[in-house]
């Protein structure tokens, strides 16, 4: 595998420990002397910073372009509204309504307007922040409340990727556009799950997704000694490697509830994350 791979921690089900695994993996690697970048791509609820506690130095808005209409120039031809497949602009004679929340920023209405009555206006849909937590370069995207441009903010976050560091991506949960935007081109995907019927159900969906993306992947089982063994059985049947098992340790839950890094509060778990990275390194170039 590359000397500086990008590793996404994803999951079908929310609340399986993606952030816990991502931040502790990033922190353990950094402590071992490696250059690490932690990218929080869970832009609807980025919370890796609660554990890593970076001091953000930069904050850049994520802007998209939406139409703005100069009615003095509009001749009411209606071409803009006929073109738009999302109903984001509609011409009613001498009146033109725009619906910014529906706009996909294709720019078509601006192009088709014969009188140049439509120009682009910038709309803020989120921010990308960056700063250091110890030696870890932390990047975090944050979607503005009310906006639906999740993939846009994620792509803007990913643009901060450094070629000279191991990138640990905290991906959004699920199997749809946000996680695809975050992780479609990573070198390895680690799927976090828990040994419950819910965890198994959503793991199967996530495996379907990652297989369609054609990425090398493995599974991390959080609270591995609760529930039943069906996740383990499933992984065995499907020939999927289980690369990490975090026990159901009350002390882990306590450190989590205080917003502490697991490997700081409980250092004996640190080798587990370094071992995880070695496992990923040895498997990533395969499949």
């Amino acid at each position: 595998m590359k000397p500086f791979p990008s590793i996404a921690v994803a999951s079908g089900k929310g609340g399986t420990g993606k952030t816990t695994i991502a931040v502790n993996l990033a922190w353990a690697l950094s402590k071992s002397g490696r250059r690490v970048q932690y990218m929080d791509c869970d832009v609807e609820e980025p919370n890796g910073a609660i554990f890593l506690k970076p001091s953000f130095q930069s904050k850049e808005p994520v802007l998209v372009e939406v139409p703005q209409v100069n009615l003095d120039k509009c001749i009411g031809c209606g071409k803009c509204g006929q073109l738009c497949q999302y109903g984001a602009i509609v011409s009613l004679g001498k009146q033109v309504l725009t619906f910014e929340a529906l706009c996909h920023s294709c720019g078509g209405c601006i192009q088709i307007c014969p009188t140049e009555a439509i120009t682009a206006k910038q709309l803020e849909v989120g921010v990308v922040e960056q700063g250091m937590a110890g030696a870890v370069d932390c990047v975090q995207g944050l979607l503005q409340i009310g906006s639906v441009r999740t993939p846009t903010v994620i792509r803007q976050t990913r643009k901060r990727s450094r070629a000279d560091a191991i990138r640990i991506l905290d991906a959004p949960p699920g199997t749809s556009c946000p996680v695809i935007a975050a992780a479609r081109d990573v070198d390895f995907m680690l799927l976090a799950t828990e040994p419950t019927p819910f965890g198994l159900h959503d793991l199967k969906l996530a495996v379907g997704m990652v297989r369609q993306l054609g990425l090398p992947f493995g599974v991390a089982i959080n609270r591995s000694d609760i529930g039943d063994d069906r996740v383990v059985q499933y992984c065995r049947e499907e020939n999927i490697d289980i690369l990490l098992q975090i026990p159901d340790d009350r002390k882990i839950a306590e450190s989590y509830s205080r917003g502490e890094m697991m490997i700081e509060a409980l250092p004996h778990y640190e080798p587990m994350f370094l071992q995880l990275y070695e496992s990923i390194q040895s498997r990533g170039s395969g499949r």
Binding site: C84, Y86, G87, V90, L92, L102
Partner: peptide, 18 residues
């Protein structure tokens, strides 16, 4: 005519009615 669209259906339907 807006039925086949994925989004903004109400707006397009309103335009048709107007």
């Amino acid at each position: 005519q807006a039925l086949s669209l994925g989004g903004g259906v109400g707006i397009q339907a309103a335009k048709q009615v107007i």
